[in-house]
Simulated assay, not measured.
Amino acid sequence: MYRASMLSTAVSTATLACALSVTAPASASMAASPVPTGTRVITTSETFTVPLGVEGIQVRAWGAGGGGGGGGTGNTPGFDRCTGGGGGGGGMVEGNVTVLPGQRITVTVGQGGTGGSLGVSGGTGGNSTITTPGGTTLLSADGGNGGGKTGELGGAGGSGTTTPDTALGGGGFVRAGRTGSSGTCVGFDRPTVPSSRGGGTVDEGSINPTESRGTGGSGGNLDPDPHPGQAGNPGLIILRW
């Protein structure tokens, strides 16, 4: 009986040790690596490498502002001198893009449109985009249009395109930039006329951390001679994962 009891105890001890050796690694394997999170504010174009463990990125982008139109000489008697129209604000876009860990995506920040010289309209602002290595544009915030020359209308705000629905959620939204102010023509009895204001962007100062980003350039002013328009401001892209 004593030997049988000792044998039974030895078998039970061995069985317990075996169970512990099997279940301990299984418990340790349940711990999963946390998904990294971060934010990147991009003010100049670059190639962005997706962090390891990241498969989706939220993008918020602003196109560049259009350039202000140049002032000039009017064609209507008594309204001989004119300011240029203000450039339009860049469009604002938000969307979720699906990516691969380690993938290198092209992030292009639009450059502001050129200011018009005397009697010349302003240039259109550049688009801010996210592009895959294969050249597919996933999202685009379009630049604002340039302001008209010599008393003409201000430039229209830019629009854009966003992503469709993804596993990350709904496909985002597009908000057009604001239109620039129109130019003004006056007679010589008004020696000084301020610039026509460029159009602003949506969510200035709240989501957009730099208020001037994406805004249109001012049209050329009078003091008393006409002046060229000002360049639009560059766009902006914010990535969150």
Score class of each variant (00 low, 15 high):
residue 131 T to P: 04
residue 207 I to F: 03
residue 58 Q to H: 10
residue 154 G to A: 02
residue 62 W to D: 01
residue 230 Q to I: 05
residue 8 S to N: 10
residue 46 E to V: 13
residue 72 G to E: 12
residue 81 R to T: 12
residue 183 G to C: 07
residue 88 G to E: 06
residue 72 G to D: 11
residue 175 R to T: 06
residue 51 P to D: 13
residue 105 I to H: 08
residue 143 G to P: 04
residue 100 L to Q: 15
residue 76 T to G: 03
residue 106 T to R: 12
residue 238 I to E: 06
residue 209 P to G: 11
residue 40 R to M: 15
residue 27 S to K: 14
residue 15 T to F: 12
residue 59 V to E: 02
residue 241 W to G: 01
residue 233 N to V: 01
residue 1 M to P: 11
residue 147 G to K: 02
residue 49 T to I: 14
residue 200 G to D: 12
residue 218 S to T: 10
residue 189 D to W: 07
residue 13 T to P: 00
residue 65 G to F: 02
residue 181 S to K: 09
residue 52 L to E: 15
residue 169 G to P: 08
residue 233 N to I: 01
residue 1 M to W: 07
residue 98 T to E: 15
residue 173 F to A: 14
residue 170 G to C: 01
residue 221 N to A: 14
residue 212 S to R: 10
residue 31 A to N: 04
residue 147 G to A: 07
residue 68 G to P: 05
residue 133 P to K: 08
residue 152 E to C: 05
residue 148 G to I: 03
residue 96 N to D: 07
residue 176 A to E: 03
residue 148 G to A: 09
residue 192 T to I: 11
residue 187 G to M: 08
residue 161 T to G: 00
residue 116 G to I: 06
residue 130 I to G: 02
residue 3 R to A: 13
residue 191 P to H: 04
residue 44 T to I: 08
residue 22 V to A: 13
residue 199 G to L: 12
residue 47 T to G: 05
residue 44 T to S: 13
residue 198 G to Q: 01
residue 2 Y to I: 13
residue 230 Q to S: 12
residue 69 G to Y: 06
residue 94 E to T: 12
residue 39 T to V: 14
residue 171 G to K: 01
residue 137 T to D: 04
residue 130 I to D: 03
residue 40 R to W: 13
residue 46 E to F: 03
residue 234 P to L: 00
residue 141 A to H: 04
residue 217 G to W: 00
residue 4 A to L: 11
residue 36 P to A: 08
residue 211 E to I: 15
residue 228 P to R: 07
residue 71 G to L: 06
residue 180 G to P: 01
residue 72 G to A: 12
residue 198 G to F: 00
residue 90 G to M: 07
residue 239 L to A: 02
residue 141 A to S: 10
residue 126 G to T: 05
residue 139 L to H: 02
residue 167 A to C: 07
residue 44 T to F: 00
residue 230 Q to C: 00
residue 113 G to E: 02
residue 140 S to G: 02
residue 151 G to C: 09
residue 28 A to E: 11
residue 6 M to S: 12
residue 132 T to S: 13
residue 1 M to Q: 10
residue 5 S to M: 09
residue 154 G to F: 01
residue 171 G to M: 01
residue 78 G to V: 05
residue 205 G to D: 08
residue 87 G to T: 00
residue 38 G to N: 08
residue 65 G to T: 04
residue 225 D to P: 11
residue 39 T to W: 02
residue 131 T to I: 07
residue 49 T to E: 10
residue 228 P to V: 05
residue 37 T to N: 14
residue 97 V to D: 03
residue 150 T to W: 07
residue 4 A to V: 08
residue 71 G to Y: 00
residue 144 G to K: 06
residue 150 T to C: 11
residue 229 G to W: 05
residue 103 Q to R: 10
residue 176 A to S: 09
residue 14 A to C: 09
residue 154 G to E: 01
residue 232 G to N: 06
